[in-house]
């Protein structure tokens, strides 16, 4: 028995559209609420961050975090959509979940997302790349990457 209904009632005003499946809860969250949602999942419910998935969609650039509630085998997945594809920007959850540091750095390089408040916003995969990497790897755009090479 998972705690999804309890979570929904407690975070009702912080989350948007919900997709429910057995042991899976995918839901939208606004950028200004993501830290609070992450804190609730990680610290209050004792969830563990498995990883996060970033993707370009029609709605915008999307980041989907995957929090695992190990004691019930359930997943809670907050989804943040950044509509401005030319400057995708959102709050980092690394200050709450240390385990998010690497995956957020990877998403910066892959899709050019800026994570505000990330403690180490330098490139993870291309820090020593022989060529200067200016644009994201998986997003056909002119978004300029932040990092050691590009200031």
């Amino acid at each position: 028995m998972d705690n999804s209904q309890e979570f929904i009632s407690e975070m009702d005003d912080k989350i948007g559209k919900i997709i429910e499946k057995p042991r899976r809860l995918f839901f939208d969250a606004e950028n200004e609420n993501i830290l609070e949602v992450a804190e609730h999942l990680f610290k209050k419910m004792g969830c563990r961050l498995s990883t996060a998935t970033a993707q370009e969609t029609y709605r915008g650039i999307e980041v989907l975090y995957h929090f695992s509630e190990d004691k019930t085998g359930s997943y809670y997945c907050p989804r943040i959509v950044m509509k401005d594809k030319s400057n995708p920007k959102m709050n980092s959850i690394s200050s709450v979940v240390k385990g998010a540091e690497w995956i957020e750095r990877e998403m910066m390089e892959m899709l050019g997302i800026t994570f505000d408040g990330h403690p180490h916003p330098e490139p993870l995969l291309t820090g020593n790349h022989p060529k200067e990497i200016k644009t994201p790897w998986r997003f056909n755009t002119n978004v300029q990457l932040r990092g050691r090479n590009n200031g």
């Binding site: 498995s50 990883t51 998935t53 993707q55 989907l64 995957h66 995956i103």
Partner: peptide
């Protein structure tokens, strides 16, 4: 834990496939 996420659109291949191997979280 090895983690895989797929998003599908009704065709015979994933539109997004995310892979996270255990070393990715253990090495830090």
């Amino acid at each position: 834990e090895v983690f895989h996420y797929v998003r599908t659109d009704g065709t015979n291949r994933p539109v997004r496939h995310k892979v996270r191997a255990p070393s990715y979280v253990n090495i830090p």
